[in-house]
């Protein structure tokens, strides 16, 4: 950063600034009601996903054909589906899959994207060119399309779907991380020297991570929502995760033929997806506002 017209960055000053910045960010975030609501909702769903199935009244596979399409009752909170399975229990189990796919997909793309971005930014030159072209190629294909084709190639199943969902987002993280290296390059490294000593290495990472965290966090939070929705979409198309797995999107697909007469079979899974994604978006918005308040008003 420029200070008094001179390009100067004392590492220790930077760190002190970052810590108080962090506190300021947390303070701004805590004041934002919507973001707080979003966070609470997400935490509730995560808890439900982890603990829910232990408390679910029925197993998600438990069928009771004589009682199919039952309306809400005391024994079946949200009724039963076309095979007599308890919808409420299936939603609880499904939380694991849907949320799991969303978070896992983002963790996957974040790891790979960060790794690639670091290589591109740090070494520059040929490897950077290669990685940036790779990002270009990935971004030349619309996200969903890429997810579709990877999912089609790999087949259905949880891990395969995680990869399919994450692939499209890699380019985003990669570019963000690499961008953090650019201003540093002009400061510390005048020539593209290979002999970079260890202390620089550590300093670099202490610079990169704090700066990169802000945009990454926002993108990742919104990205989880995007992945959850794409997962549902994939299930709908016959890819991703398939019935009888109670992933919310798969539940929607399976109930499609009954939507005329039993619309609540579609209503509840869709509602779950909508609420979770809404909460994630609220949180993401709040994070973005907290990280750069100038943009808010």
């Amino acid at each position: 950063m420029y200070k008094n017209g001179m390009l100067r960055n004392s590492p220790s000053n930077e760190l002190i600034k970052k810590e108080s910045q962090f506190r300021a960010i947390m303070k701004r975030l805590s004041k934002n009601w919507f973001a707080a609501v979003g966070l609470v909702i997400i935490i509730i769903f995560i808890i439900l996903a982890i603990l829910g199935p232990t408390f679910a009244p029925y197993d998600y596979m438990e069928m009771d054909i004589s009682n199919k399409f039952a309306p809400s009752s005391s024994s079946h909170l949200l009724g039963t589906d076309d095979l007599g399975r308890d919808i409420f229990s299936r939603l609880l189990y499904g939380a694991r899959y849907s949320l799991g796919l969303g978070f896992a997909g983002q963790i996957f793309q974040l790891t790979i994207g960060t790794f690639l971005g670091c290589i591109a930014g740090y070494y520059g030159g040929k490897s950077e060119e290669l990685i940036m072209r790779f990002c270009d190629i990935i971004q030349a294909i619309p996200n969903i399309l890429l997810a579709v084709i990877v999912s089609a190639a790999l087949g259905t199943g949880f891990m395969n779907t995680v990869i399919a969902l994450g692939v499209g987002h890699i380019a985003g993280s990669c570019r963000i991380i690499r961008a953090q290296f650019l201003p540093l390059r002009e400061q510390e490294f005048v020539e593209a020297e290979k002999s970079i000593n260890c202390s620089n290495f550590r300093v670099i990472f202490r610079h990169i991570l704090p700066n990169a965290i802000s945009p990454l966090i926002v993108i990742t939070t919104m990205g989880v929502g995007g992945c959850i929705m794409s997962a549902a979409g994939l299930s709908y198309l016959g890819l991703g995760v398939q019935p009888p797995t109670p992933e919310w999107g798969a539940m929607l697909t399976a109930s499609r033929e009954y939507m005329r007469h039993y619309p609540n079979l579609i209503l509840y899974p869709g509602l779950c997806i909508a609420i979770v994604v809404l909460a994630l978006n609220l949180l993401g918005d709040g994070l973005r506002d907290a990280l750069d308040p100038k943009l808010k008003n």
Binding site: M229, A232, G249, L252, G270, I273, A274, N281
Partner: peptide
């Protein structure tokens, strides 16, 4: 936040 195909349905 609403899934498109759910909204469509």
């Amino acid at each position: 936040s609403l899934p498109e195909f759910w909204l469509a349905m």
